[in-house]
Structure formats: C-alpha cells, structure tokens
C-alpha cells in the first residue's frame, strides 16, 4: 500500500516538475519574443537625468535604471533574445554535426570511428573556458563566432551518445533484416537507426540549451562574448559589477533572468529524461 502511495506522489511530483518547467520556459520565451512590442526602443533609450533609479519606485522603471538611465526591465527582456538565440542555434548545430558523426562512426566503425573518438578524448581533456579564450583571441568575439565555438566544443557529446546507442543496435535483428532485403545504408542510418535514438538526444538537447545559455553569459561577462553594446544578460552583469556597491538591482535582475530560464529548461529536461530515456543513457 505504501509503495502505491509513494508512486502516486512521485508521478504527481513529476507533473509539477513539468508544469513548473513549462511555465517558466514558456513564459520567458513569450516575454522575450514580445519584447519589441512590450518595450519598443526602451532597451537602448539613454536618459541621463534618470540614472540609477531604485527598483519598484516608479511604475515606468519597475526594475530601476542602469548607470546610463536605461530601463533595466526592458534591457533584461531584450537581453533574452541573445541568450535564447545562442542556446537554440548552437544546440541545433551541434546536434546535426554530432548525430551524423555518431551514426557514421558507430555503424561503419573502423578508421573513421577511431578518428572521431580520439578527437573526443582530446576535447574532453581541454578546459572549455581556456579553449574559448584562445579561440576568441584568434577570430574575435561576437554572436556568430560564439555559436561556432559552442558547436565545436559540443558536437562530441552527441557523437558519443549516438555512437554508443548505434553500437548496441547495429547487430539487432531489425537492422540485419533491413540489410538483408537490401535497404540502402543511408536509409538504415536515418530511417531505421535514428528514430531509436531520438529520446536521449532530445533530453541532451534540452539540458544543453540550458548549459549553453550559462556558457554564453559567462563568456560575455568575461568580455569574450557578444558586443557590449547589444543588451545581453552576461554583458549587463559585467556592467553592473562596477556598481554592485550602490546599485544592486543592475546586477541582480539579469542574473535572476538567467537563473530562471536555465532552471525552467533543467526542470523540463529532467522530466523529459524520466519520460523519454528511462534507462538513463543521458544521466550525468
């Protein structure tokens, strides 16, 4: 009896986890998408007569203003565009590269497999931030370079995940029978193997969007990421750091935005893992 009760509790909790994650992620995405409608032009409007206004003091500047008199709320919402863009595009790129590499190296094995796996070893032993500062010193900062950097440093995770699953599947009967009736390699890879791997890949993607939002903001905070003039969460935190002593709100709100976005995605990812990947191939 008690086992039944605890299982019921558990599933109710899982629903709560999903609802919280979906509301947080959905709400933030909606706000960010509508930012131009909600606060037209406010993110960049400088008003030196309204410098460093405290939050919650006036309805016009609910989160206060920054050292140039720009509205913090409008900038936080606009800054989300960069984070979501980097998170989504970099993960999409890493998935395409990683899944193809993983399928090919797991299915054909041999020389190519060895090259991909040794490359993965090398990458896992290199601290990401140091790789990033070297890469950015060569090619410069900016949005597209950062996305390329994230793709380079993360496709390996998908390649390893997919390769491992392909190794387990390639000798199963359904693949052997497909080979026997002469299905082309391309169709075996993408129509027979790929659908069996979608679950774990989606879980890893959700968690990686969260992780890449964190990485993007740290790089931008360190001055290695997107252009400081574009509103972004990491950039606002770098600015706010100087004013920590007398204007806490400039650094508190952008950080909260990162925390809530990443938390929403992590909740969703955790829920998805239990739903799509019960055997735990993606567990950390």
């Amino acid at each position: 009896m008690s086992a039944v009760v605890s299982v019921m509790n558990f599933s109710r909790f899982k629903n709560l986890e999903f609802i919280l994650g979906a509301v947080l992620t959905g709400g933030i995405c909606l706000l960010v998408l509508l930012s131009d409608l909600l606060f037209p032009g406010a993110a960049d409007r400088i008003d030196l007569s309204a410098r460093l206004l405290a939050p919650f003091a006036s309805p016009e500047h609910l989160f206060g203003t920054d050292p140039l008199g720009r509205d913090v709320l409008a900038r936080v919402v606009a800054g989300g565009q960069i984070s979501l863009q980097v998170g989504l595009v970099s993960v999409a790129g890493a998935v395409v590269v990683g899944v193809i590499m993983g399928l090919v190296s797991g299915y054909y094995r041999g020389f190519w497999d060895m090259v991909v796996m040794r490359f993965a070893d090398v990458q896992l032993a290199m601290p990401f931030i140091l790789l990033a500062i070297t890469f950015i010193a060569i090619v410069g900062g900016g949005l597209s370079n950062m996305i390329i950097l994230l793709i380079i440093s993360q496709w390996v995770q998908y390649a390893r995940l997919v390769r491992g699953s392909v190794l387990a599947l390639r000798d199963r009967e359904f693949i052997q029978s497909a080979q026997a009736i002469g299905v082309s390699d391309f169709n075996i890879l993408f129509r027979h193997l790929l659908p069996n791997l979608v679950g774990p890949v989606i879980v890893l993607m959700t968690l990686n969007v969260a992780n890449n939002i964190l990485l993007e903001s740290s790089l931008t905070f360190l001055g290695l990421g997107v252009d400081p003039l574009t509103p972004s969460w990491g950039g606002m935190l770098a600015d706010g750091r100087t004013y920590l002593q007398n204007a806490w709100w400039v650094s508190v709100f952008p950080g909260l935005a990162i925390l809530l976005t990443v938390l929403g995605l992590n909740l969703l990812g955790d829920w998805l893992r239990d739903t799509l990947d019960p055997t735990g191939r993606t567990s950390r």
């Binding site: 740290s218 905070f221 920590l244 508190v252 950080g255 990162i258 925390l259 990443v262 909740l267």
Partner: peptide, 25 residues
C-alpha cells in the same frame, strides 16, 4: 531534487557576485 536542480541552474559568476553583495558589501 528540486534544490539540486536549482543549484545546477546558477551562473557561477553571478552567484559569486551575489555572495559578494551579501557578505562583503
């Protein structure tokens, strides 16, 4: 579980700034 998910979601440099704000300033 919830607390650990929350802990995983902190940007480390922001957490550091918030600790400075609280304990140093």
């Amino acid at each position: 579980r919830i607390l650990s998910l929350l802990g995983l979601s902190f940007p480390n440099f922001w957490l550091a700034l918030m600790l400075v704000l609280l304990f140093s300033i």
